Each structure stands twice: as structure tokens, then as C-alpha cells.
Amino acid sequence: MTGEPIRVLLAEDQGMMRGAPALLLGMEDDIEVVARVAAGDAILDAALAHLPDVALLDIELPGRSGLDAAADLRVRVPGCRVLILTTFGSAGPNPLTARESDALKASADGATVADIAARLHLSESTVRNYLSSAIGKTGTRNRMEALREARRQGRL
């Protein structure tokens, strides 16, 4: 790693959807999750306290929307870039896409993200996205739990 890690603030009201990206981002040597908040009205205080380089914000949050908080960040923490995310519907009934299934299956032997990316001819960030999505859709905490749950639910 060269230089300082990218400092990230995550704002998501669903614990699982906040935890999965934090876990995946935490695997990167050059990324550090410095704050996790569950409400929009906590974003600015967390950003002022931790001075993140990037804020990953859900649109719909209790207390204040991610869009409103992004406007605050632009003024009060101008060095912080903002990425907006949102989820639609509940995680339970959503079927896994073919690529999410492929990524889960490829992780069954404990392969690293780099190994999975090579096997599937994808970038590592794309594999992380597929695994994160599968984790969210299965309501689990990590890819091995997601694999077990997807198999239990007959999704694989």
C-alpha cells in the first residue's frame, strides 16, 4: 500500500446492508471504514469527527435523507466525495442473479476474491459487488453464510 488508506463513512439503516459493505471494504489494504451510522441525522457529526474521504450514503434514512446529508457534506466537509446507494424491496424473496450464484459457488472452497475473479474472468471489484449483493439477498453476514443459506433456500 502506498500513502494513506481511503477513509470511508457508511450510512445505511439496515444493519446487514451496512455490515456487508463494511466487511468487504475492510478486506482492502487501501480502504478503512472509519464510521458506520444508521440514521441520516448522524452523518454530518460522524463526518466531522472522522473526516472521511468518501461517504457511502443510502437515500432513505431515518432522521434525514442521504440526499440532504450529501448537501450538508458538500458544504461542511468539502473534501469528502459522496456515493449514493439504495436498495429496493426486501432481501428475502429476491432471486440471485446468475453471476451472484457463480460468485458464491466459486467461493465454496474458501477462494480469495482474486481467485474468484480469475476463475470467472471478472474484476475483483465486480466479484465483491456480486458477493455483497448475494449476502444482502440471503440476509447473512458473510459469503460462506450466504452460500449455505442460498443452498438451503434452493437458490443454488
Rank of each mutant, 00 (worst) to 15 (best):
residue 91 A to F: 15
residue 95 P to C: 04
residue 122 L to V: 06
residue 127 V to A: 08
residue 43 I to W: 00
residue 114 A to T: 05
residue 28 E to W: 02
residue 52 P to D: 12
residue 23 L to T: 14
residue 44 L to E: 11
residue 22 A to Y: 03
residue 23 L to R: 15
residue 116 I to S: 10
residue 148 R to I: 09
residue 94 N to K: 10
residue 1 M to F: 03
residue 52 P to F: 13
residue 124 E to V: 04
residue 44 L to N: 01
residue 143 R to H: 11
residue 151 R to N: 09
residue 14 Q to C: 08
residue 133 S to G: 13
residue 128 R to N: 13
residue 49 A to G: 02
residue 147 L to N: 09
residue 124 E to L: 02
residue 98 A to G: 02
residue 9 L to S: 05
residue 12 E to S: 07
residue 30 D to Y: 00
residue 156 L to D: 12
residue 113 V to M: 03
residue 136 G to P: 00
residue 114 A to H: 02
residue 12 E to W: 04
residue 123 S to L: 05
residue 129 N to L: 14
residue 36 R to G: 05
residue 62 P to M: 11
residue 141 R to H: 15
residue 36 R to I: 05
residue 111 A to Q: 08
residue 101 S to T: 12
residue 68 D to L: 08
residue 88 F to Q: 15
residue 6 I to P: 01
residue 80 C to D: 08
residue 60 E to R: 13
residue 80 C to S: 10
residue 29 D to Y: 03
residue 29 D to Q: 07
residue 72 D to N: 03
residue 33 V to W: 06
residue 54 V to M: 10
residue 113 V to K: 02
residue 90 S to N: 11
residue 126 T to R: 15
residue 9 L to R: 06
residue 109 D to V: 05
residue 144 M to I: 10
residue 118 A to L: 09
residue 80 C to V: 07
residue 46 A to P: 01
residue 53 D to E: 08
residue 131 L to V: 09
residue 106 A to V: 05
residue 104 L to G: 10
residue 116 I to G: 08
residue 131 L to F: 07
residue 118 A to R: 15
residue 17 M to D: 10
residue 103 A to W: 02
residue 92 G to N: 07
residue 93 P to A: 11
residue 146 A to H: 07
residue 14 Q to I: 08
residue 14 Q to R: 05
residue 138 T to S: 13
residue 132 S to N: 15
residue 1 M to K: 01
residue 145 E to R: 14
residue 35 A to M: 01
residue 150 A to P: 01
residue 44 L to Q: 04
residue 66 G to L: 10
residue 40 G to F: 03
residue 50 H to T: 12
residue 27 M to D: 12
residue 9 L to W: 06
residue 119 R to A: 12
residue 55 A to P: 04
residue 132 S to H: 02
residue 14 Q to N: 14
residue 36 R to C: 12
residue 150 A to V: 00
residue 64 R to D: 13
residue 137 K to T: 06
residue 54 V to E: 08
residue 133 S to T: 08
residue 45 D to E: 14
residue 4 E to D: 11
residue 25 L to A: 09
residue 49 A to P: 00
residue 47 A to R: 09
residue 45 D to S: 11
residue 28 E to F: 01
residue 49 A to S: 12
residue 4 E to I: 00
residue 63 G to K: 02
residue 71 A to V: 12
residue 81 R to W: 00
residue 5 P to E: 11
residue 45 D to F: 04
residue 117 A to E: 11
residue 155 R to N: 04
residue 112 T to E: 06
residue 38 A to V: 03
residue 1 M to Y: 01
residue 94 N to A: 15
residue 41 D to G: 00
